[in-house]
């Protein structure tokens, strides 16, 4: 297994947010984490990369227990994180944004160079010296993914990549994610848009009120409209 999460519990202050979350991601898999807003998708990701101070449980990444490590060490192991809201450094140029994400080459993960990323996201190549703050939402979403790929991760957590993007840009995002998969990156993507998730994912988990309440292939999910409708409330 690429990533195994067991009994993950998280708190914000007095509020208990995640309850015994557990899921797995296989080598080269794209797994969707589905659920409504506030269900705990982002908190799950933030907990995995150590951005939530109060968490317990076991997080195994490539066979190593990373649950007690600080954020930057987890990321340096090759576990990339793309946050929601993109969080581009708006004062820095595209090149400088990528520089912040740069990490050394890793033996078991695809190596990304600026040139390769500009091929994946041609728009970025045309605006290397533009400050992040003067880019459109779609361009920023591409930059935030490219920035994380500069760290040569073997697995990427993608938090709501389609949020706030026009349908056309979302379709480009589908292509980019499938290309990443082809290159050998494992991906966990959190989503509310089931159409989008279906186009990219091998398997899906549903999270509801901080608990995992379904796990299976996309076909299995489609054969269980009761679960889908109860928790995704389509």
């Amino acid at each position: 297994m690429k990533l195994t999460v067991q009994d993950l519990n998280s708190h914000y202050g007095p509020a208990h947010i995640l309850f015994d979350i557990g899921f797995e991601v296989g080598e080269g898999e794209v797994v969707a984490l589905l659920g409504r807003n506030g269900a705990g998708k982002s908190t799950t990701f933030r907990s995995i990369v150590g951005l939530v101070a109060q968490r317990s449980g076991r997080i195994m990444f490539e066979g190593k227990d990373v649950s007690a490590k600080p954020t930057h060490e987890i990321v340096r192991e090759g576990l990339g994180y793309v946050p929601e809201e993109r969080r581009i450094f708006t004062d820095l140029t595209v090149e400088e944004n990528l520089e912040v994400g740069r990490q050394p080459k890793r033996p078991n993960a695809p190596h990304w160079t600026r040139e390769k990323l500009f091929a994946l996201f041609p728009n970025l190549g045309e605006m290397k010296n533009r400050p992040g703050g003067r880019m459109s939402g779609g361009e920023q979403q591409m930059l935030t993914i490219a920035r994380t790929l500069m760290g040569n991760p073997s697995l990427v957590l993608l938090d709501e990549p389609s949020e706030g993007l026009s349908p056309k840009i979302v379709e480009q995002m589908v292509d980019a994610i499938l290309t990443m998969k082809k290159e050998g990156v494992s991906i966990v993507v959190s989503e509310q848009n089931l159409h989008f998730a279906r186009l990219i994912s091998d398997r899906a988990y549903i999270i509801e009120r901080g608990r995992i309440c379904f796990g299976g292939t996309m076909a299995e999910l489609d054969s269980r409209p009761d679960i889908r409708d109860a928790h995704l409330s389509l």
Binding site: V49, L51, P70, T71, H72, V75, R76, Y81, P83, R87, F89, T90, D91, L92, E96, N97, E99, V100, G101, Q103, R147, T148, G151
Partner: peptide, 21 residues
């Protein structure tokens, strides 16, 4: 570059593998 990035969003810098401390 890292310092300027941290000026804007220090958690994000850590999430990109930089030792914030």
């Amino acid at each position: 570059v890292l310092v300027r990035a941290a000026t804007q969003d220090r958690d994000m810098v850590a999430a990109l593998g930089v030792n914030q401390k």
